[in-house]
Each structure stands twice: as C-alpha cells, then as structure tokens.
Amino acid sequence: MLLTSVIIVLREVLEAALLLSILLATSRFMQLRTRWFYASLAFGVVGAVAYGNNLTAISNAFDGTGQELLDAFLQFAIYLLLLLIVPLMVINHHRGAYKRNLLQGAMLVAVAFAVLREGSEVYVYLSAFRTQPDLYSSVMTGALLGAGIGFSIGALFYYLLLGLSRHYTLLLAGILLTLVGAGMCAQAAQMLIQADWLPAQAPLWDTSALLPEGSLPGQLLYALVSYEATPTPIEVIVYSVSISLMVLLLGFTHYVSRSYRQNLPEARAH
C-alpha cells in the first residue's frame, strides 16, 4: 500500500511542484510579487476538494465522459496559459516591464489549474481509504513520503533555477515549460481519445520493454514530460505541434523584442 501511495502522490505532487517552482523562480527574476501564489495554491486546493467531492456528477456528465473532458480542458488551458506566459517572460526579459499584470494573472491561473487537477486525484485517492482504518496509516505514510520527495525536488529545483545566471534560468525555464506544456497537450489528447472525441489508433511504437511506464523512473518521466511508452500517432502529432507552436512563438517574440532593444538607442537619438 505504501509504495502505491508514494507513487500516486509523488507523481501528482511533482507535476504541480515543478510548474510552481519554475514560475516562482522566474517571478523572482522578473520581480513580480510572489505572495499571490499562496492565494493561487489555496484556490487550487479548494478547487481540488470541490472537484473530488463532485466527481460522481462530473463523471456522469457528457454521457459519462465528463471526467475526461474536464481533465482535457484543464490541461489544454494550462498549455494555452503557458503559450502566453513564456513569450511574455521573454519580452519582459528583453525590454523591461510589459503587461506584467497579465503575466502574473496567467501564472496564477496556471498554478491554480495544475494544483486543482493534481490535487483532486490525491484527494480522491486518500478519501478512498478513510473508511479503511487498518490501511490508512500505511497510505498516509506513503502519501507523506511521496509529498516530501515531490516538494523537496521542487524546492531544490527552485533554488537551482535561482542560482543560475539570469540568462540560463530563462532558457531552462523556457525549455522546461515548453516540454511541460507539450506533455499537457499530449495528455489532453489522450483524454479526448479515451472520451472517444478523437479516433483511437494503434500505437506508433512501444518502449515499454526499455522503460516501463509503471516503473519509478517511468512515473518520474511521466510527471516531467508525460512519458508514454505506447503513444498513438495523434498523441505524437499533438506533442510535436504544441512544441513547434511554442518554439515558433518564442523565436518570434525573441527576434522582435531583441530588435526592439537594438533600435531603442537610435529611437532616442532622433
């Protein structure tokens, strides 16, 4: 029981903690207020409990596909928010304060959504054992171990990002957020396939022999970049399209804001 709950809780906590630590670290660099993240976390937790308590109704909505659709919606929304956050980060880096309230707001909503999604899963899992007292201590111990490991990785990662030079922090944050965002999209696509909104297909490849999805490294990779041992063509396409879209957008904003900065002294001279 202990190992199971470690894996479940660690997987969920790690996904949220990673996103939180990247956004927190970049907020620090952009000198955005970080106190609002507490509110965002609180909203996420309240939302997670509400989600967990109403899961029956949500599941039964849309002909029994409500769970998948809501999950897909949350993940896709986080990706869209990241699509807004990452370019704004680049612009803010190159030309100073620009739409900082929008950036801050997008970050807060993204964190709240991530916490809501991951938190609801942990909440439902833990609530399953409330009525089984002989298992509860084992489950809770595992949950604490998993949460401890997840938050520790998040905290150390946060300090690592802060310790890097500004430029590398932004680069690393950009790469990671791109991967996280693409992972979210792939998972959303997976959910839509499960809900039968997207056609089911045979998997493109199978790496489960190389790295089983159920193993601890497999679960960690799943949390980081949504590792999938047997992805279908749709998932692969969605994953690559979302990465390319982010990269294109980043390249564009990078180019534009850099040329803006280069033109700045000339503009002043005239």
């Binding site: 039964n60 899992y125 047997t230």
Partner: peptide, 25 residues
C-alpha cells in the same frame, strides 16, 4: 470506495467513484 481503472498498455486511466459505472472505449 473509489477506484481508478488504469492500464499502461491500453493507455487508459479513469477514476470510478464508489457505486458508479464507467464507460471506457
């Protein structure tokens, strides 16, 4: 109690609350 139907090989995961029914394609 709730249960999560999960299969890595089928790429499916779905939480089924206690006493409920779920449809998985």
């Amino acid at each position: 109690t709730p249960e999560e139907f999960e299969s890595y090989e089928l790429n499916r995961e779905k939480v089924i609350m206690g006493g409920q029914r779920a449809i998985i394609f």
